[in-house]
Design a protein around this nucleic acid. Structure first.
Lengths: 233, 233
DNA sequence: CGCCTCACCTTACGACGTATGGTCACCTTA
DNA sequence: TAAGGTGACCATACGTCGTAAGGTGAGGCG
């Protein structure tokens, strides 16, 4: 890890993201990031005045702009709010998949970064311009936010049994204790094409849930007193 | 913190939960937990063979059984799967509110504890017995799971401005950059009864989202080929 | 009595965040 | 060109963490 250029705030943050992507958020230490830049830990403090919190906030900012870019690179069809919000959620998810540590990091910080507020503002604007009341849009923020952030934590994690050496007896005991779960996995595995590809396509699951929410929200919008607001305020 | 009884695995885990509730998950250190029991850090290793990971797993187990208890203490009406699943999600949330560190802890572990599998099994069983296909139930697990776990992270956190000394200019700059968000907060604040109580009743928001999902799932169930399965397999 | 075992403790190591205070190349400015 | 300042990086050190290794003393048992 020899230094080829001088250390800058940008290079520090980029190294932090790279480290987190490669080895997880726990690997993002002052010494670890510094060594990626061919530098000692204490050198980072010249570029990140606010200690390590500043570094973590910087990681959030970087991912937030990455999401914003992914959003802006889309067709930008003016199809209606559902299509627009859907595209934004999918863009956010696609970026989160590249940085799976992001939801956990966001949850661990106490304040919200302006760049993240901007992402919400963007979705909120699309909904309000599309004819949603602020009340409904507010509820959508909660619903969509918790889904986008929660979905990265794959619940039934891949490689759950791990090194394939989970004892046979243990598996059978589990199957006995979890009859419905066992049957579900068997059923889904059977329906899936290639069993080696994993029994659960989480992208499909994500889109299903997203559409469930969006359909419900649109239905709620039509039920509400139809207040048209084309600009905030 | 004088010891009155001998150290047991149960007392260690209980101390860990108490510490996490009081001072957050970061305060759950070997030395911290030990001192709560009037004991030194290394003494814990006799009762938790597997190092600190064992302690954290134990915290998850404790909360999981707390959720299971909350579920079992409910009326247990046989109203249909929507009612049953709804009650389970609300019970899980009520327990999580007492232990706000739980979602983050769950997300940070790589394997899933049997006690947590049991919670999913319970919901899954209710859905399948209620006439849902495994496919639909599987999707519901993802949707409901990500919501229950994601909702604890209050997105627009209370005390966001913090010590009320967030500079006026800063607030105005924020309002200018986030017109829709500003308008939303103003609108919701106006509609809410008591402005000092916070502008966002997250319990209401949670139930709204939950019902959105449950309504959507039930609608999907009715649309699907109605396969009746009263027992797993 | 001697000895074992269990429960708890002491000490120590390496990694962490970071306070304090160098060191040294480079830029003024006269 | 010499004097002195400045900015970027580093060495050392402190207190915290998890935990490896081994010590200590009380109670049980032959």
């Amino acid at each position: 890890m020899a230094a080829t250029k001088s250390v800058t705030r940008e290079r520090v943050l980029a190294a932090g993201v790279a480290l987190a992507d490669a080895d997880g958020l726990a690997a993002v230490t002052m010494r670890g990031v510094a060594s990626r830049l061919g530098v000692e830990a204490m050198s980072l403090y010249h570029h990140l005045p606010g200690k390590k919190e500043e570094l973590l906030d910087g990681l959030i900012d970087l991912v937030a702009v990455e999401i914003a870019q992914a959003v802006s690179e889309q067709p930008a069809a003016d199809d209606g709010w559902v299509t627009q919000v859907r595209a934004r959620c999918l863009a956010a998810r696609s970026v989160m998949l590249r940085h799976p540590w992001m939801p956990g990091l966001l949850g661990s910080r106490t304040t919200i970064r302006p760049a993240v507020f901007q992402l919400y503002e963007d979705v909120l604007g699309a909904m309000v311009r599309g004819g949603c009341t602020y009340r409904l849009a507010h509820r959508a923020m909660h619903a969509l936010g918790s889904m986008v952030l929660g979905f990265s934590q794959e619940l039934f994690s891949p490689g759950d049994a791990g090194d394939a050496e989970a004892s046979e007896a243990e598996m059978e005991a589990m199957a006995a204790a979890l009859p419905y779960t066992t049957a579900m996995v068997a059923s889904e595995l059977h329906d899936a094409g290639d069993p080696t590809l994993g029994w659960c396509d989480s992208q499909t699951e994500f889109e299903f849930t997203l559409d469930l929410l969006l359909d419900g929200l649109e239905r709620a919008r039509l039920t509400e007193a139809p207040v048209l607001r084309l600009s905030p305020g």
